[in-house]
């Protein structure tokens, strides 16, 4: 699975949107969920927080695997979702970097906001959660069979881990 951290926090996200925006909160339900950044729980928590703060969240979308172009395109074309995506001005994406870039490519008319950043491959267990075991080249970490906790990696890389809210 991809290990997904983030560069921004909730306050920094709010700086990128306005109360006039028609916002869709979008999340991958695979790797990003296992990194406790996305998934249904975190998708709803973020959407609820934005609504509470006066933002216009028009839709919440959970996508099984957020890096699969056919699944992303389906949202832009399917009769059930086409209109709502067409009417959005902002899509906040809780996915890995690849998922974000592919979502941005499909929804060209909307401002697509990146939250997740990929840093390598991880191994997951319920007991320990996600741990980075195979880092991306160039981030300054060696592979580790035991792995690094996401907090450790975030601290090392100057990033953040876990949910936005």
């Amino acid at each position: 699975m991809i290990v997904v951290l983030r560069d921004i926090d909730y306050e920094q996200l709010k700086e990128q949107i306005t109360t006039d925006d028609r916002i869709i909160v979008w999340s991958c339900n695979d790797c990003t969920k296992y990194c406790d950044l996305g998934g249904r729980k975190n998708l709803n928590a973020l959407a609820d927080a934005l609504e509470k703060d006066g933002y216009n969240v028009i839709h919440r979308e959970l996508i099984g695997v957020g890096c699969q172009p056919p699944l992303i395109r389906l949202r832009s074309q399917h009769p059930a979702t086409k209109d709502i995506f067409g009417s959005a001005s902002v899509i906040v994406v809780l996915s890995c970097t690849d998922g974000f870039l592919k979502t941005q490519r499909v929804f060209k008319k909307q401002k697509v906001i990146q939250i997740g950043v990929s840093v390598g491959l991880g191994a997951y267990s319920k007991k320990e959660g996600m741990r980075l075991v195979i880092p991306m080249d160039g981030i300054g970490l060696e592979p580790s069979i035991e792995g690094y906790s996401l907090d450790e990696v975030a601290k090392k890389l100057g990033k953040k881990s876990g949910p936005l809210v």
Binding site: D98, G120, M136
Partner: peptide, 17 residues
């Protein structure tokens, strides 16, 4: 493992020793 795709780019990963 070749890496992690990011659109048309491939981000390399570090192999275990």
């Amino acid at each position: 493992t070749l890496g992690i795709p990011e659109l048309s780019e491939m981000k390399a990963v570090v192999p275990p020793k």
